[in-house]
């Protein structure tokens, strides 16, 4: 008879065991806020389809204090999502070579964050032109 009796340790609470896992759970948690924002935008599109009264009510709702607080939290989580998204990118993309040399992970992250900055400025510029510049 075998005297073997392997012990399998439980996984409950594994994410508290290491700061690395705590950070992982926090950046996974940003998804809940992305979901809330998608819901907020969906409500907007639905109101827009209902006509002017519904749309104005939606804008008033977005301008209310609870929604401003919620949107501030969503904003912070979006920023954190972006930061962690590009931080892990060197591990998720196939290795890239420029001039025979492998591009360093930090460079890929920096390019991603730089790209986000450029895209965001561009987006704001377009919205600004559509709403102020173009109207004049």
């Amino acid at each position: 008879m075998s005297a073997r009796k392997p012990y399998v340790r439980p996984m409950a609470g594994w994410w508290r065991r290491d700061p690395f896992f705590v950070e992982y759970m926090v950046h996974e948690g940003t998804a809940f806020f992305v979901w809330l924002y998608a819901l907020e935008l969906l409500a907007g599109v639905l109101c827009l389809a209902q006509g002017k009264a519904a749309w104005d009510a939606y804008r008033a709702f977005v301008a209310s204090v609870p929604l401003l607080i919620l949107n501030a939290a969503i904003f912070a989580m979006m920023l954190y999502h972006g930061y962690t998204w590009f931080k892990i990118m060197p591990r998720t993309l196939p290795p890239m070579k420029v001039g025979g040399k492998r591009v360093a992970g930090a460079t890929i992250t920096a390019l991603g964050l730089g790209g986000a900055l450029v895209a965001s400025v561009l987006l704001f510029g377009i919205v600004w032109m559509l709403t102020s510049g173009g109207a004049q």
Binding site: V34, Y37, N71, I74, F75, M78, L79, H81, G82, W85, F86, G112, G115, A116, A119, S120, L123, F124
Partner: peptide
């Protein structure tokens, strides 16, 4: 979301 999420909010 990483590129323009925060700016959209």
């Amino acid at each position: 979301a990483a590129l323009i999420g925060a700016m959209l909010v």
